[in-house]
C-alpha cells in the first residue's frame, strides 16, 4: 500500500495533475434521491420554441440564473429582440443587464419579434466533437453536458459552437452551458426556463415518445432549425421563426 502511495506521490510531483487523485476514488457514487426509476435510454430530449408566443419578459433568463447559479456576464439562455424596418435593416438587442427588462425603443418598425436562444443540444454537437479531453459529451438521453472534473478550460468548445451558447465560467474557469436542467428533467420536472415561461413559448419534450406534445408539434413539419448548414443537427426546433434569424 505504501508502495502504491509513493507511486502516486511521485506522479503528483511529476505533474500528472493533482486533480486526478480526487477522481480516482472508487465506483460510481450512488445518486441520493435520484436513482429512482429514471431510465436514460428511454428518452431523447428535445426542445421547441414558438417565437410567435414569446413576449420577451425574460422570465426564462431569470429562472435559469436562479436555478443554475449562472454568474453575471455569461448566459445559458437569452432572448433576442429583432426590429426590422421597411428597408430590411435589422436591429437586434438583448436585455442581459440589470433586471433583464426590455425597454421600448423609438424608431420605425416593419416587423418585430422576440427569439429566445438556448443550447441546441445538437445531435452531432461540435462542442463535444472538439473537446480534447472528453469533458464535453452527449448523454444517452440527448443532453450535451460538461464534466467539471475533467474540463481543462481550453475554450475550444466555446469557439466551435455556432450558436454562441457556451462560455467560460469566470469563477471556475471551466466551460459551462445549458444542461437542459439535467437535475430537473431526470427527476421528471421541466427545465427552469420552460417551467417559468408564462406563454408556453418554450416547449420541452421527449422525441422518443410519439405522443409527447413536442413530437406532435414536430410531425407537422412547420419548424426551422438554426444554422442547419453547420451539419450539427440541432434539437431546438423553432416555430414561426422569421427568415432573418440565424
Amino acid at each position: 500500500m505504501s508502495k502504491e502511495l509513493s507511486r502516486r506521490e511521485l506522479l503528483k510531483v511529476l505533474g500528472a495533475g493533482s486533480g486526478l487523485l480526487l477522481i480516482h476514488c472508487g465506483p460510481v457514487p450512488p445518486l441520493p434521491g435520484t436513482e429512482t426509476d429514471y431510465d436514460w435510454e428511454a428518452h431523447f430530449w428535445g426542445y421547441a420554441i414558438d417565437t410567435t408566443k414569446c413576449i420577451g419578459c425574460n422570465a426564462c433568463m431569470r429562472a435559469c440564473r436562479a436555478e443554475n447559479d449562472v454568474p453575471e456576464g455569461v448566459n445559458r439562455t437569452w432572448v433576442e429582440r429583432y426590429r426590422i424596418d421597411a428597408h430590411e435593416s435589422v436591429r437586434v438587442d438583448i436585455a442581459d443587464k440589470g433586471d433583464y427588462v426590455f425597454e421600448p425603443v423609438a424608431g420605425d418598425v416593419a416587423r418585430a419579434f422576440f427569439v429566445p436562444k438556448i443550447c441546441n443540444h445538437c445531435e452531432k454537437s461540435v462542442c463535444s466533437q472538439v473537446c480534447p479531453v472528453g469533458a464535453s459529451y452527449m448523454s444517452k438521453d440527448g443532453v450535451v453536458l460538461v464534466d467539471h472534473q475533467r474540463c481543462i478550460g481550453c475554450g475550444y468548445c466555446v469557439q466551435a459552437c455556432p450558436y454562441g451558447t457556451r462560455y467560460i465560467d469566470p469563477r471556475t474557469h471551466m466551460a459551462d452551458k445549458c444542461t437542459l436542467c439535467y437535475h430537473r428533467i431526470t427527476r421528471g420536472l421541466q427545465p427552469a426556463c420552460v417551467a417559468s415561461c408564462p406563454t408556453g413559448a418554450r416547449m420541452f419534450g421527449d422525441l422518443k415518445d410519439p405522443k409527447s406534445t413536442l413530437s406532435t408539434v414536430l410531425r407537422q413539419g412547420r419548424y426551422r432549425l438554426l444554422r442547419p448548414e453547420m451539419g450539427t443537427h440541432p434539437k431546438c426546433y423553432y416555430l414561426g421563426l422569421d427568415r432573418e434569424v440565424v
Binding site: 457514487p29 436555478e67 437535475h183 427527476r187
Partner: peptide
Amino acid sequence: YRGAAVASARTETVPR
C-alpha cells in the same frame, strides 16, 4: 467521457 459525470450532473444542482 467519464461515466460518473452523468450522476454528478443529476445531483450537483438541486431544483429551486
